[in-house]
Every structure is written in structure tokens, then in C-alpha cells.
Simulated assay, not measured.
Amino acid sequence: MPHADTLDVVHHDDTRTRFTDVRYQLHRDGIRIWSADGEHAITDVLMTQAYRQREADR
């Protein structure tokens, strides 16, 4: 499961939601995100931008 230091979700109405230090999974119905705040499921996804500033854990 990918990890991102910053994950921006762009919605169909061009609004953005930003998450930090998350794991995420893209799927046909949208994106599922796991953060310190809990689990989020977003279905109105136009685009995502994930940023990783450190090396991935192996």
C-alpha cells in the first residue's frame, strides 16, 4: 500500500482536500485513505497528487 507524506485529492468541483502522512489505495470507486484521524473513503475524485519526501520503508 503506497505511503505519502502529503496527498492532495482534487474533487470534481475543483476543490481540494489535503492529507498528511497517510497510506492510500486507489480503486475504481475512488480512493481509500488511512491517516492518524482514521479511515476516509472519497468517491468524487478527479485527480490525486501524492508526494513522498523520504525513502519508502522496505
Score class of each variant (00 low, 15 high):
residue 14 D to Y: 11
residue 21 D to Q: 13
residue 23 R to N: 10
residue 19 F to K: 04
residue 34 W to H: 13
residue 41 A to I: 07
residue 29 D to E: 15
residue 27 H to F: 08
residue 11 H to L: 13
residue 7 L to N: 06
residue 38 G to V: 04
residue 37 D to G: 11
residue 25 Q to K: 15
residue 7 L to D: 08
residue 42 I to K: 06
residue 37 D to H: 09
residue 17 T to Y: 00
residue 15 T to S: 15
residue 29 D to G: 13
residue 23 R to I: 00
residue 20 T to E: 15
residue 35 S to F: 08
residue 39 E to Q: 12
residue 27 H to Y: 08
residue 36 A to S: 13
residue 19 F to Y: 15
residue 17 T to N: 00
residue 31 I to S: 12
residue 21 D to G: 05
residue 6 T to A: 08
residue 21 D to S: 11
residue 17 T to L: 06
residue 37 D to E: 14
residue 10 V to I: 15
residue 11 H to R: 15
residue 12 H to P: 05
residue 35 S to T: 09
residue 6 T to N: 07
residue 19 F to W: 06
residue 15 T to Q: 14
residue 37 D to F: 07
residue 15 T to N: 10
residue 20 T to I: 06
residue 22 V to E: 05
residue 30 G to W: 06
residue 5 D to F: 00
residue 37 D to N: 12
residue 32 R to P: 00
residue 8 D to E: 12
residue 39 E to S: 07
residue 7 L to P: 03
residue 7 L to W: 09
residue 32 R to K: 15
residue 43 T to G: 08
residue 40 H to P: 01
residue 37 D to C: 01
residue 21 D to A: 10
residue 43 T to V: 01
residue 30 G to F: 04
residue 39 E to G: 00
residue 17 T to I: 05
residue 23 R to F: 13
residue 39 E to R: 12
residue 7 L to M: 06
residue 38 G to K: 04
residue 14 D to C: 01
residue 14 D to K: 07
residue 38 G to D: 04
residue 23 R to L: 02
residue 32 R to G: 08
residue 7 L to G: 04
residue 29 D to L: 10
residue 40 H to C: 01
residue 5 D to T: 02
residue 14 D to L: 09
residue 20 T to W: 04
residue 43 T to R: 13
residue 5 D to Y: 00
residue 40 H to A: 06
residue 32 R to V: 15
residue 40 H to M: 01
residue 17 T to H: 02
residue 37 D to A: 15
residue 6 T to M: 06
residue 41 A to P: 00
residue 27 H to G: 15
residue 39 E to F: 01
residue 25 Q to D: 10
residue 13 D to I: 03
residue 7 L to C: 06
residue 31 I to V: 15
residue 22 V to H: 04
residue 12 H to L: 09
residue 19 F to D: 04
residue 12 H to C: 01
residue 27 H to E: 14
residue 33 I to W: 13
residue 23 R to W: 11
residue 25 Q to G: 09
residue 9 V to A: 06
residue 23 R to A: 03
residue 26 L to H: 03
residue 32 R to H: 12
residue 25 Q to L: 12
residue 20 T to S: 14
residue 5 D to C: 01
residue 16 R to K: 12
residue 14 D to R: 08
residue 33 I to T: 10
residue 9 V to L: 11
residue 22 V to C: 08
residue 23 R to G: 05
